[in-house]
Amino acid sequence: MKTEMEIQKYTNEYQNSVVELIAFIQQQEYNIPIKLEDQPDLFSIEKVYQSGRGNFWIALHNGDVVGTIALQDIGNQQAALKKLFVHPDYRGKSYGTAAHLLHTVLEWAEQQAIVKIILGTTEQFKAAHRFYEKHGFLEITERELPEDFPKLKVDTKFFTYVI
């Protein structure tokens, strides 16, 4: 019998688990050419994400980090959706990890009076594209990104969600 998924705000005790999960998915599962050095935000989560109207959450199953999601305040009542990663064993409808994480972010954004969420992703994450579209995100061009959007080198597709 599976136990319930627990979504909670990130605390420092989970840093290594968060870094390991994200690096595994990016580098080993999808062969994305991004190194941990290219993501200094992973080593200062509190400063980058848990400030202003932003935050960072983890999904725990039996005490293990199986998913992450972040909302980065970029000003003008806008936020960047970042670091939505779910371990392969916890994807899909049986656990609903990504949906739980996204619901947490959307609820938080509404409480924080954020009016628009923007995200960047890579071409390889086809299932993620479908997931975002299914949850009301619309694809936009890079030219439509706000000036302060924290774009990564590997970001090639962009989506927005109006609250």
Rank of each mutant, 00 (worst) to 15 (best):
residue 119 L to N: 07
residue 88 P to K: 10
residue 31 N to L: 15
residue 145 L to N: 09
residue 20 E to W: 00
residue 126 K to A: 09
residue 108 W to S: 05
residue 133 E to S: 09
residue 141 T to P: 05
residue 134 K to C: 08
residue 48 V to T: 10
residue 5 M to H: 13
residue 93 K to P: 05
residue 60 L to A: 13
residue 55 N to P: 03
residue 7 I to W: 07
residue 53 R to D: 09
residue 121 T to N: 10
residue 145 L to W: 03
residue 85 F to G: 01
residue 52 G to C: 07
residue 80 A to P: 05
residue 23 A to L: 07
residue 4 E to V: 06
residue 146 P to I: 01
residue 131 F to W: 08
residue 83 K to Y: 07
residue 130 R to E: 11
residue 53 R to L: 10
residue 85 F to E: 01
residue 64 D to E: 14
residue 140 I to E: 01
residue 26 Q to K: 04
residue 79 A to L: 02
residue 155 D to E: 07
residue 90 Y to Q: 11
residue 10 Y to W: 09
residue 4 E to S: 14
residue 120 G to Q: 01
residue 43 F to K: 10
residue 13 E to C: 14
residue 159 F to H: 07
residue 143 R to N: 13
residue 84 L to W: 05
residue 30 Y to K: 06
residue 66 V to P: 03
residue 65 V to W: 01
residue 95 Y to S: 13
residue 5 M to R: 13
residue 17 S to K: 11
residue 96 G to D: 10
residue 131 F to H: 00
residue 14 Y to I: 02
residue 134 K to T: 15
residue 104 T to M: 08
residue 59 A to E: 06
residue 133 E to W: 02
residue 78 Q to G: 02
residue 71 L to W: 00
residue 154 V to F: 12
residue 9 K to G: 15
residue 161 Y to M: 06
residue 125 F to M: 15
residue 49 Y to K: 09
residue 8 Q to I: 13
residue 84 L to H: 05
residue 25 I to Y: 03
residue 134 K to V: 07
residue 20 E to K: 11
residue 2 K to E: 12
residue 47 K to F: 08
residue 19 V to R: 06
residue 135 H to K: 06
residue 106 L to I: 11
residue 9 K to W: 09
residue 57 W to P: 02
residue 2 K to R: 15
residue 140 I to A: 03
residue 95 Y to H: 12
residue 44 S to P: 02
residue 94 S to Q: 15
residue 25 I to H: 08
residue 104 T to H: 10
residue 93 K to Q: 14
residue 68 T to H: 04
residue 17 S to Y: 11
residue 98 A to I: 00
residue 34 I to C: 13
residue 10 Y to A: 04
residue 38 D to C: 03
residue 13 E to R: 13
residue 103 H to W: 12
residue 25 I to G: 10
residue 139 E to Y: 00
residue 117 I to A: 00
residue 139 E to I: 08
residue 65 V to G: 04
residue 39 Q to C: 15
residue 83 K to G: 05
residue 31 N to I: 00
residue 97 T to P: 03
residue 2 K to D: 11
residue 96 G to F: 04
residue 3 T to L: 14
residue 58 I to K: 04
residue 15 Q to P: 04
residue 85 F to Q: 03
residue 153 K to T: 11
residue 19 V to Y: 02
residue 102 L to T: 01
residue 28 Q to T: 10
residue 15 Q to L: 13
